[in-house]
Design a protein around this nucleic acid. Structure first.
Lengths: 184, 184
DNA sequence: ACAAGCATGTAAGTTGTTACATGATTCG
DNA sequence: CGAATCATGTAACAACTTACATGCTTGT
């Protein structure tokens, strides 16, 4: 049987919300999945084409007067079944998070402690921004709550984001303290 | 000026430790960088070739009798300078950690709560294993401590791993509790 | 008139994984 | 003798990003 990658399943999953076109899918990703699954147009459009080819989705060309023509996709029964099958499958290996700051800090001996400190301080700032963004998304989800069933799960993933970001912030704090006391 | 990707810098950095050959580099990565920067042979060997081409490293073919021939690489002054320059540069955007479990949980409405629970339980188990691995690496680093300056930074990155893993474990715990009480 | 947003798409390039191919040595 | 480890490398493929190309509509 043919296999698909997770990005394809992500798009399959998004089609269960009320996003229909490639453009809407991209919008949706940018304000929800974005912190743990980015997808670009370069993937979305070819994937949608593939889904139709494989009978997992169907297209209708929507031509509302006064709007650019858009293609609306919706899952077929086959597509829905495949999604559910994937959801039920155990996930493989834990993901490895590529982290440029850790990579640089790992080789910290090659530069001054001051430089490592600057790196960490910048990183901490970025993490704080991210944390605030998560809080903003959280509020926005809770205000809308049109679709109660979905939002519950969306808040779970947001909580993950908040917790791991907070852990990283704490780590910056502790590490910075160790860098500034050790030398000088 | 020519630009290099982070993986190339990672290899440049590893050459400052006492790893010299492609084989040793791979070994080193597997037991240290592995939790935040995986690199395969398919990248290592071509990259080493490139480093020599660009005058960032030099090779010597080591033929110790009774051992397979190996190529020993060491950084040139130019290579060392480039590494330091990269280290001092501020890092770009925060990385996006692709997470299959979050992706599946995000679409949790499409399956039973029981299935989401199983997913989370498996994930928690894997995270715990990872945490123990980190503790083991930590002990092993502290026992050796031949090279005091480097180990300090290595322990920083390990601490990051431990903290973020612990945060994820906590999240599993809380989320599982919410899943089992909400329904039935 | 023009910028911003809506809307679709492709081509080239980069990065990375996997599987394969090769061969020496060491240990049981 | 065979398995494990040491050691180097490549080719095919998969995945993803970026930049480009196109064209409509709406608001200023």
């Amino acid at each position: 049987m043919k296999t698909y990658n997770d990005t394809t399943y992500a798009i399959l999953g998004i089609l269960t919300t009320n996003c229909k076109s490639g453009y809407e899918i991209k919008k949706f990703i940018d304000q929800s999945l974005n912190h743990f699954w980015k997808i670009s147009y370069g993937q979305i459009y070819p994937t949608l084409k593939l889904l139709v080819q494989d009978g997992l989705a169907e297209v209708q060309t929507e031509s509302v007067p006064g709007k650019p023509a858009s293609k609306d996709y919706h899952l077929t029964t086959k597509g829905m079944e495949l999604l559910k099958k994937w959801l039920a499958q155990p996930t493989g290996q834990l993901p490895v998070e590529r982290n440029e700051i850790l990579l640089k800090l790992f080789f910290g001996r090659q530069q001054s402690e001051e430089q490592s400190r600057i790196l960490l301080q910048d990183y901490k700032q970025e993490l704080k921004k991210r944390y605030f963004t998560y809080e903003a998304i959280e509020r926005s989800i809770m205000e809308h709550e049109e679709d109660e069933e979905d939002t519950k799960y969306w808040l779970f993933t947001l909580d993950y984001g908040k917790r791991s970001t907070q852990a990283a912030i704490d780590w910056c704090h502790v590490t910075l303290a160790q860098l500034s006391t050790k030398e000088e």
